[in-house]
Amino acid sequence: MRAGILRSPSPLPGFGLSFGIIMAILSIVVLLPIGALLGRGLMIGPADLWSMVNSRRIWSALALSFRAALVASLFNLVFGLLLAWVLVRYRFWGRRFIDAAVDLPFALPTAVAGIALTALYAPNGPFGQALAPLGIRVAYTEAGIWVALVFIGLPFVVRTVQPVIEQLEPDLEEASATLGARRPYTLRRVVLPTLTPALLTGFALCLARSVGEYGSVIFIAGNIPNVTEIAPLLIVIRLEEYNYDAAAAIGIAMLLISFAMLLAINAIQVWSRRRIGLV
């Protein structure tokens, strides 16, 4: 092991052991299953794969998953920035409490969030009843999916942007002010550009998570084919029908979307590191 992939020998021990553990667990848990999925795709062949994916129901499901994730992530981009800014820059009663609560979606199981949101927004739930006179229905419509995805994606933007705001030097804003800039101009031209890479990273992480989300969505979505049926649910349905090829086809489509997002996240980080030296 030592001579092979190590670039330079080290007096610290344990490379062989730790690398062995990594490769063993990584292979069993991640690489072999993903390989099996892609292998299944190769066995089916691209032409059949395409004909299996190319149905109205699957396109609507994929489009819905992506569209809802985009809407929720954009919403979280704006409110995540707002929350991060307020939490770092302002002092108010309950600030620490709110700060701790931001991670609730990371800690609360998605199924729990799913049934709770459904109970809230169902026509007989408190929010559902309040919105009904306005003619707004949330549960069992696409809006319900947005709400669920806003919930699970909420921490991503806050937690990527918050540390950058903390490290923002007041000098920059003061310099801008001494040069005659008014506050909105300073925010727009000095503060916001510094935050852009972190905002983009948080947005991309949120998007990646939302596209594949299942647990919090299926309860509130209503799951009407072509209308509120998300792509992961379609995989589950195909599996319950023992139609493994069709499930694999949708799975591969989703995996490709994931790879694309991962690539985008990495590209954003490389770009931001080059631009301002922030990771």
């Binding site: 299953p33 993903i34 099996a36 999925l37 594949g212 992961p232 694999a248 994931s258 991962l262």
Partner: peptide
């Protein structure tokens, strides 16, 4: 982090 949990389950079933 970026693979849907459902896809992870599916991959395991296919394996």
């Amino acid at each position: 982090f970026s693979v849907s949990p459902v896809v992870a389950g599916l991959a395991l079933i296919l394996l």
